[in-house]
Amino acid sequence: MLSYRPTDRPSSRSTAHRRSLVAAGAATALALGLAACGSFSDSSSSKPGMDHGAKSSASSVPSGSKSMGDMPGMERTAAGNGLAAAKDGYRFASKETTLPSGERAAYRFTVTGPDGKPVTGFAVDQTKRMHFYAVRSDLTGFQHLHPAMAADGTWTADLASLAPGSWRVFASFTPAAGSGKDQDFVLSRTVSVPGKATKTPLPAPAGSTQVDGYTVTVKGEPMAGMAHPLTVSVAKGGKPVTDLQPYLDTYAHLTAFHEGDSAFAHLHPTTKVSGAHGGPELSFHAELPTSGNWRLFLQFRTGGTLHTAALTLRVG
């Protein structure tokens, strides 16, 4: 949690450490002489399951959030690829193993701590206390939600219509106390949606994609396991877009999932937010752990509308 998980990631680490990370990323980019290249060419807005949204809840209250820092999103990276249901004593637990096809569904879950009890204290990350993702196994379906938490620690994610097949659901969070305090976690489980499932081949890597009349272009040549910068540009009607509005304290939220196993990565934005005039170019810190094809999901807001562009990026 092309992965993810956007002035955007709150952090409790020191300014010195943040600057060291920025310097390291810049040095890597310079040494490798990064050139422009990069991803995909298909519209994602018309595909089923490509939904996104945020539900107003206790999880979205920014009270007690951590300071942003000078370079947003460069401070912390969740360890692992998000494919495990448990890590360091924390567990993503749910009784839901199947969800209905073709209709809205509520997915309920808890995060239990090392003591086996549901965790109820979560730090705010990108204005939310919980980021929830649902991704179909062939990466054609994607939903990014911000569920509501009940007093007993039970979260409810209200999913839009799901296509038949195997889905993986991810919980991205940071405990506010306990042994995992200030540590980013991305845990996941699988869920089945009954019905006739048709696997859709992943679109080949290209250079740009279109969504809702916007053209999204990605430049960069990331290598597996190494830090690389990526540049995303947004245009409409052949003209650069400069009216991107903040979304989750950033101008664009970018997550990635690996072809084959749906491993998760969150690409961190380094473009600072300053009012509702973002664009046309946005910079990201990319550190993708595995080579192969990654499906990127870029979310950005204009005129109060959230757009989701899907892109395929080849990682060497």
Rank of each mutant, 00 (worst) to 15 (best):
A150K: 02
G260K: 01
F122R: 04
L288S: 04
S46Q: 15
A24Y: 14
K55P: 02
A309F: 02
A276Q: 12
H228A: 11
Y133R: 10
A310L: 03
V211G: 03
G141C: 09
H266S: 09
D243P: 01
M226D: 06
T7F: 15
V315E: 13
L248N: 03
G237M: 11
A123Y: 06
S57G: 15
Y90N: 13
H17W: 06
T28N: 09
A197F: 02
A224V: 09
A84L: 07
Q143F: 09
D158V: 10
G64Y: 03
L187W: 09
K181T: 14
E96A: 13
L267G: 12
T110E: 12
A16L: 13
P246K: 11
G82L: 08
G38D: 05
A150D: 12
H146D: 15
E221D: 08
H277C: 01
M149N: 01
V191W: 01
H268I: 00
T290A: 07
G207C: 13
K128P: 00
T308D: 03
K181F: 02
F170V: 15
T250H: 07
L313I: 00
A85C: 01
R91V: 14
A148F: 01
S60K: 03
R104V: 02
M223E: 14
P203C: 05
A171D: 12
G316A: 14
G279M: 11
S283A: 12
H52F: 11
L282M: 04
S179W: 04
D249C: 09
P289V: 03
L30R: 13
P175G: 15
A286C: 13
